[in-house]
């Protein structure tokens, strides 16, 4: 099973104006920060709202979901003692809000799924996309990941001791996937594995690298920026290395108490 990566965009790389990316003012106004961040990354990746109908699967991944809206509704509920609550933050708090809003913006009825499996979310969504492409159920998949950091989460996780070894992070990253090489292809994913035990850097090389000059991006839980779907940003980094001339990158992700994942990316050849 393999697939080709087309355009890939992280939220830092979004250059277009938000009003262009999300032209529907009413939709835009209701969107929380993370929904705006993720949807704008998705639309930038596709090259405009008009391109949304061209994808036939929309896969999103998030470990924490729409935290700010969840918190807003929860605070109102407590403060107002469950009376006369504004439904908007509740409506926008569901984990599939981003996937739903992309479908709504592009009037796209295609397959639409959201994975919420902590630090596995991105890889799980990628697995779904790769299986759909392999089965011929999809020809062009939009895959993206997002997570937001909010002050209360930072406070709570600081009390849990997280930030002694990590810095708090957030981000979003979207890409297109196709079963065959296309004009916009930049790299290919040749393997996605879910090993049942932790692997050392050396073990990753031995087991997964097919060439001695393969580069390894090894993410374990020590001294790094931390958020559940951070591996999507690392995936983007791997793609950049391929674009810069590296022929193979092995990406190992192991954090937040989940089992590790391994991805192997290669140049187009």
């Amino acid at each position: 099973m393999r697939c080709f990566v087309g355009k890939i965009v992280t939220h830092e790389e979004v250059q277009s104006d938000l009003k262009q990316l999300i032209p529907d003012a009413a939709l835009r106004r209701r969107m929380s920060r993370v929904v705006k961040m993720a949807v704008s990354t998705a639309v930038e990746c596709l090259g405009g709202v008009a391109e949304i109908p061209r994808v036939d699967a929309i896969l999103t991944a998030t470990g924490w979901g729409c935290l700010a809206d969840s918190e807003k509704f929860l605070r109102n509920l407590i403060t107002e003692q469950e009376q006369l609550l504004n439904p908007t933050p509740f409506i926008q708090s569901t984990f599939n809000t981003v996937g739903g809003q992309i479908a709504l913006l592009g009037h796209n009825h295609c397959y639409n799924l959201t994975y919420v499996n902590r630090s596995h979310s991105f890889e799980d969504a990628l697995l779904d996309g790769m299986m759909r492409l392999a089965d011929g159920e999809s020809r062009r998949v939009l895959l993206g990941a997002f997570d937001e950091m909010i002050p209360s989460l930072e406070t709570i996780t600081r009390r849990m001791g997280w930030w002694r070894h990590h810095t708090a992070g957030e981000g979003s990253c979207f890409m297109t996937l196709t079963p065959e090489r296309e004009a916009d292809s930049v790299a290919q994913v040749v393997q996605l594995d879910f090993p049942i035990e932790e692997l050392s850097a050396e073990e990753c090389r031995v087991r997964y690298a097919t060439t001695p000059d393969a580069e390894l991006i090894y993410c374990d839980a020590t001294y790094e920026e931390l958020y559940p779907t951070r591996s999507a940003a690392r995936f983007s980094e791997a793609v950049q290395r391929i674009k810069a001339g590296t022929k193979e990158v092995v990406l190992y992700n192991n954090c937040m108490g989940m089992r590790p994942t391994v991805l192997v990316l290669q140049w187009l050849g």
Partner: peptide, 22 residues
Amino acid sequence: AASTEAIAAHCHIRGYRTTIST
């Protein structure tokens, strides 16, 4: 994912697992 992991641990499910929310 916390509920999925707890279910897997207490039901001895050792293979691939994931969590979906739509």
